[in-house]
Write a protein that binds this DNA or RNA. Structure first.
Lengths: 247, 247
DNA sequence: GTTGATTTGTCCGTATGTATA
DNA sequence: GTATACATACGGACAAATCAA
């Protein structure tokens, strides 16, 4: 029986075999393939199933152990380390930390980088400012219970929000950082959701494997007067997050 | 000049260099880096910028051409290939055909299959009926301008919507089919959006390549009295559709 | 219309990394 | 540990197409 026509790993794809195997195992876990006892088949069985060498399976498992997806115990077997999927609400009052309040004990935002630059056509149009006006860009990472959940790029008008980077760095919260700049309240005006493969930089920050999928939310927040305050593109790890749209 | 410390590609990561370069270029396109004339810098310039060989850049470009992101013309240059994505609105009044009214001349729904079955726990909970109550399941495909856009599985309470399959088959519209069953109006109560790789059946129906991504929307529609009428799981081809959440 | 500069397309060879046996 | 096969990356040379002086 040519059992491997569907299972066969592809070579010369630019993705190392062990990474493809890791993806497959992760996918299998996601679709409940090993739900019975939460235990992975032995390395030799996996090697046979995928039509590859046992050492390649071991590389894949090592990576998944490193990621926290699996837990290997010598002499006993390899087991699934179960995690929940976070549900992230999108509404007029969307805020990261509040949205996950009931789902994670520990929620925090990190500032990875920031820069002052001129607005690209896309950013300028979103923020309603002239092209090439100065803006501040924040590169941020959000974690819940120690796991990276989303990676965002945000733009703010530079004049109005000159100290936004420091404010975010110290508070880890956009809500607090905006409050420091006189924005007591803000509303989500629009959100465009799409999905694609994660890019290399996001793979690293979100601790994802190549081929992983990100949910992309491009959003505009406005103050109570309707003036744009924040334009952002957030990439959510699709295997850890779902978005809930409610009225 | 160590100009490449920030730009340098990483080796021995299990991700081929040309793939990392392709990601970088795709990202650049997404952030509007080449918006001026929609033209990529010459291969030699990209090679220098990334600190790699021109041939490696060429591999990356070849992959992006294959994806439909770029278009290369000998002697002229390499250009960004803009593709049009349908924007599908999600709101309290979400309806497929109306949502795409301004974006596609031709919109239609096809009934692929239908069955009468008993409600699974998930379906029963969503529709607010006892488990194992009879329901009708519709398998539908939606197209816009001749391109498959989404593939949906819908469940309806069997008693109340006994002729829903025929009504949908003849009209190609859920709105019309529900009206035939006395539901003059309905509202979107909740939508959960996630993303994953397409399953093989959906690949065929949506005419997608293996490894393609689908946006999954699990939704509940209710009548004006708040009674559930339709529970559905819709898979959108992620490279053809984005979802717009607006107030 | 010709020439030269620019840019993509193709071919060669070599070195190293990855996976298998 | 060794041998083999293939994929990846680099370097150079030249052909083919385009465009402007």
């Amino acid at each position: 029986m040519p059992a491997n026509t569907a299972n066969a790993m592809e070579r010369k794809t630019g993705i190392a075999l062990w990474r493809q195997v890791a993806d497959r195992i992760r996918q299998g876990i996601g679709s409940g393939e090993f739900d019975g006892d939460g235990r992975l088949p032995p390395e030799t069985a996996l090697a046979e199933r995928f039509g590859i060498n046992r050492h390649t399976v071991r590389s894949a498992i090592a990576a998944l152990v490193q990621e926290g997806v699996l837990r290997a115990e010598q002499g006993r077997g390899t087991f699934i380390q179960r995690r929940r999927r976070f549900t992230y609400p999108i509404s007029a009052r969307t805020r990261f930390s509040e949205g996950l309040r009931d789902q994670a004990r520990d929620r925090r935002g990190h500032l990875l980088a920031h820069a002052r630059e001129t607005a690209s056509p896309r950013v300028a149009e979103a923020l309603g400012i002239p092209e090439d006006d100065p803006v501040i860009r924040l590169e941020t990472l959000s974690e819940a219970d120690g796991r990276p959940v989303s990676r965002a790029t945000s733009w703010f008008q530079a004049e109005r929000f000159s100290g936004i980077a420091d404010a975010f760095a110290s508070s880890g919260s956009i809500t607090v950082a905006l409050r420091d700049h006189g924005v007591a309240d803000y509303l989500r005006k629009s959100t465009i959701v799409s999905a694609r493969h994660a890019e290399s930089a996001d793979l690293a920050d979100l601790k994802l494997a190549p081929g992983a999928i990100v949910l992309v939310a491009v959003a505009l927040n406005v103050d109570p007067d309707g003036r744009p305050v924040q334009f952002s593109e957030t990439r959510f790890a699709a295997d850890r997050v779902e978005l809930s749209v409610s009225e």
